[in-house]
Every structure is written in structure tokens, then in C-alpha cells.
């Protein structure tokens, strides 16, 4: 809408100045409506993340560093085979409230279950991203493949695990979810190890475009999946 018309509409709805505003605002408590910022929620939640999540991510990074130091020809794929376990850490942490039947209780706490899970996933996601970027840069030092292809090789198993894990968490209920997610990540990891060992054709750089394409598709799918998961948790807020 053009500026002149917008201004005219604003003026058309202009109301006389309220006379008792200041007096009223002084009477009511000022903090009750203030929204907690994402930063505040993240700071409050960082301490509640299970130590195991940090430890496992660090251990995986250590194992990857070991593979990199060995200078094997298939280092990229060996590193890539371990990344599903990074995703597993995030998924296990995000489903912890439901696993211990605390989801309903957490819905009634200061920060909603949705904010809590979102912040935990964000923290661990950022941590994983840093680890993955480090792995990609260290692998890139070997100069075996291009940067995009290396990134696709490393990220695709991680993203695939994350996508499938989010889908399982969204569609299933019960205590079996972590086992399903563990199964998925182990399966993807084992498949990557087997593929690396047998030097399967799909790992050849000729098929790199498919890896890159798959990575982009999975990134988009994870964003959608994450959004759906958050929408699902919204139900708990209104409950």
C-alpha cells in the first residue's frame, strides 16, 4: 500500500489522547508481562543439559581427530560414519522430558516445555555445528575432495540421523523412542563403515552431486521437521 494512503488510514483511526494512562500504568506491576529473551532461556537451560551429551560429543570429536591423524585414504568417510552419534546426543536430550514422564510437569514451569526443548536443541545444535565445521576444515586439509563435497560427505549421515530421529520423536510416544533413535544412528553409522570398507560406488566423487543435493534437501527437511516438532509441543502449552 502506498505511503500516502497508509498515513491517511493511520490518521483515520487516530484517537484522542488517553487521560488516565500514566496513573494506571504506575498502579500495575511492571514485570508481569515482560517476556524472557531467548538469551535468558538459553543461559538458564545450558546447565540442565545432561553431561553425557557434552561428553559423547567431545568423545566423538576425539575419535574423529584420531582418524584424521592416521591419514587413511578413507578418512572422510570414517569421520562421516561417526557423525550420526553427534545427532543422537541432540535427539536423546530433546526427548529426555518425555522419557522421564516430566513433559507435563515441565509444561507448567516458568519456561514452557517448547522453549526448554528449543533452547536445548539450539545449544547442542550450535555445539555440533562447531564440531562439524572443525571436522570439515580438518578433513579439508587433506585436500582429497572439494570443500562442498567434503561438507556433504560429513554432514549427510548427521542430517539423515537428525531428520529420521525428529520424525520418530514427532510420530511416536513412549519410552522406546531413544532406542529407535539409537538404532537409526547405529544403522546409518554401520552402513557408512561398511560402505567405506567395501569402497562402494556411491562414495565415488562422480556421485558427489547426489550427496550435495541430498544434504540441501535434508537441511530443508530438518528445518520443517523442527518447526513441526515445536508446533506439536505448542499443544502442551495450551493444555
Amino acid at each position: 500500500m502506498d505511503k500516502e494512503l497508509k498515513m491517511a488510514i493511520c490518521r483515520a483511526y487516530e484517537a484522542p489522547l488517553p487521560g488516565r494512562k500514566e496513573e494506571f500504568l504506575q498502579k500495575i506491576p511492571q514485570n508481569s508481562m515482560q517476556k524472557s529473551s531467548l538469551y535468558e532461556i538459553i543461559c538458564s537451560q545450558i546447565g540442565y543439559i545432561h553431561k553425557g551429551a557434552w561428553f559423547s560429543a567431545t568423545a566423538i570429536f576425539g575419535a574423529i581427530l584420531y582418524f584424521l591423524s592416521q591419514q587413511e585414504p578413507n578418512t572422510v568417510f570414517l569421520c562421516s560414519a561417526l557423525t550420526p552419534f553427534l545427532a543422537l546426543g541432540v535427539l536423546i536430550e530433546s526427548g529426555r522430558s518425555q522419557r522421564y514422564n516430566m513433559a507435563e510437569l515441565e509444561s507448567a514451569t516458568k519456561y514452557s516445555l517448547r522453549s526448554t526443548i528449543f533452547s536445548k536443541m539450539l545449544i547442542l545444535g550450535i555445539f555440533d555445528l562447531i564440531v562439524l565445521l572443525l571436522i570439515i576444515s580438518l578433513t579439508q586439509l587433506q585436500k582429497r575432495y572439494g570443500l562442498l563435497l567434503t561438507a556433504a560427505y560429513i554432514l549427510l549421515p548427521y542430517l539423515l540421523t537428525m531428520w529420521l530421529g525428529l520424525m520418530i520423536e514427532r510420530t511416536s510416544f513412549g519410552r522406546e523412542i531413544p532406542y529407535s533413535v539409537m538404532g537409526i544412528s547405529t544403522l546409518i553409522s554401520v552402513l557408512m563403515f561398511i560402505s567405506t570398507g567395501t569402497n562402494i560406488i556411491i562414495l565415488k566423487p562422480d556421485y558427489g552431486i547426489w550427496w550435495e543435493f541430498g544434504t540441501f534437501i535434508l537441511i530443508a527437511e530438518i528445518i520443517l521437521s523442527g518447526q513441526k516438532r515445536m508446533d506439536q509441543l505448542e499443544e502442551s502449552i495450551w493444555n
Binding site: 483511526y13 487516530e14 484517537a15 484522542p16 488517553p18 494512562k21 494506571f24 500504568l25 500495575i28 511492571q30 508481562m33 515482560q34 517476556k35
Partner: peptide, 17 residues
């Protein structure tokens, strides 16, 4: 949320009504 701003908005809305 800023009370001051929201007050004006809600007041304008009510005045319109």
C-alpha cells in the same frame, strides 16, 4: 512487551469500537 506502547494500541482499538 512494553506496557506503554500496548496501552496506546489497545486504547485505540477500544476507541475504534
Amino acid at each position: 512487551m512494553d506496557y506503554d506502547v500496548q496501552y496506546d494500541k489497545i486504547y485505540r482499538y477500544c476507541y475504534y469500537k
